[in-house]
Design a protein around this nucleic acid. Structure first.
Length: 295
DNA sequence: CAAGTTACCTGACGGC
DNA sequence: TGCCGTCAGGTAACTT
């Protein structure tokens, strides 16, 4: 379920419930996700550890622990222990992944693949039917160098001040590909998936198949703030449901967004009444208004 | 290097 | 009811 806004909503929803909780036990279905799940390493490194921070980078959720060293040998936590080392769990939700907090007694669902049991009677459950998601565990030395390690090659966040017209134009210069495909390239900019690439281009009045290299500075000056506004709105929509986070069932986050084009083939454009068209671009469903998106 | 294609998996939906 | 094809919010390994 994850583009950037959904992951951000999950991140914000989990934060108050996970911060300062101790991971007590970890369970694993045994089914591989996109990559092997580092169950043995998590079991060894995380049980007994305290969760410190929950953050998001691109479409990945990062859960840091306060101490990356094996804790089974130090059962009594030392309050004066200020060692900065952090092990980090990284979670990606793929196409169908979902994270929720459940009481321990809540029935296990099909495709609940990893469960992190906490010291407050709840457990964090990763459910992912298609198993395109992934779980990684970075030991302290790797966790300290995320941007040059795990996220090397990942583009800046859309909200970063690195995202300027000049930045995009320098890369787009050599790209003959459609602007929509360009926006979805995580090496260019992080977190924009199929839905929001479609929506942002509609809001900016740019045809999704237009070659990335043909966008002028004024296009980028329009597109960058539009991307930020749409992502912000989507996060706000999801945020309104955060209070239901525990035991959250089904729809939360951007399902509540009012899409202008995504999924609206042959329906009238909210701006001009023209019928929204659907085409394939780089193998992905692409929706646009033939009247509003000439730029 | 850029860009297109395929693969990974399950489930929902529409047509027959 | 059921069978079958198609499609789905992502990423990375391939090929061209």
């Amino acid at each position: 379920m994850p583009e950037l806004p959904e992951v951000e909503v999950i991140c914000q929803g989990l934060r108050p419930h996970l911060t300062n909780r101790i991971i007590t036990t970890i369970y694993y279905s045994g089914k591989p996700l996109r990559h092997p799940v580092p169950f043995a390493a998590m079991d060894e490194m995380l049980c007994g550890q305290t969760i410190s921070t929950i953050t998001r980078r691109a479409k990945y959720l990062l859960i840091a622990t306060k101490d990356g060293t094996p804790s089974r040998s130090c059962a009594a936590p030392d309050a004066r222990d200020t060692r900065p080392s952090l092990a980090v769990i990284i979670i990606h939700l793929g196409m169908t992944g979902n994270l929720g907090l459940f009481p321990l007694a809540a029935p296990i669902k099909t495709h609940d693949h990893v469960r992190w049991q906490l010291d407050n009677g709840l457990e964090l459950r990763l459910n992912d039917s298609r198993r395109f998601g992934g779980v990684w565990l970075l030991p302290p030395e790797q966790a300290r160098n995320l941007e040059t390690g795990f996220f090397a090659g990942t583009g800046p966040e859309p909200f970063s001040n690195l995202c300027t017209p000049a930045y995009f134009m320098a890369i787009a210069q050599k790209r003959e590909q459609p602007i929509k495909t360009f926006l979805m390239d995580s090496k260019v900019v992080a977190g924009i998936g199929n839905i929001y690439a479609n929506e942002a281009l509609m809001a900016a009045g740019i045809h999704p198949a237009r070659k990335a290299c043909t966008l002028q500075e004024h296009h980028w000056q329009r597109l960058i703030p539009v991307i930020r506004t749409i992502l912000t709105q989507a996060i706000a929509c999801g945020g309104s449901t955060i209070s239901d986070f525990i035991n959250a069932n089904g729809e939360r986050g951007y399902f509540q967004m009012n899409f202008q084009v995504y999924g609206r083939k042959n329906q009238p454009c909210h701006q001009c009444g023209s019928l929204i068209e659907k085409i394939q671009i780089s193998g992905r469903a692409s929706y646009f208004c033939p009247h509003c998106q000439h730029g």
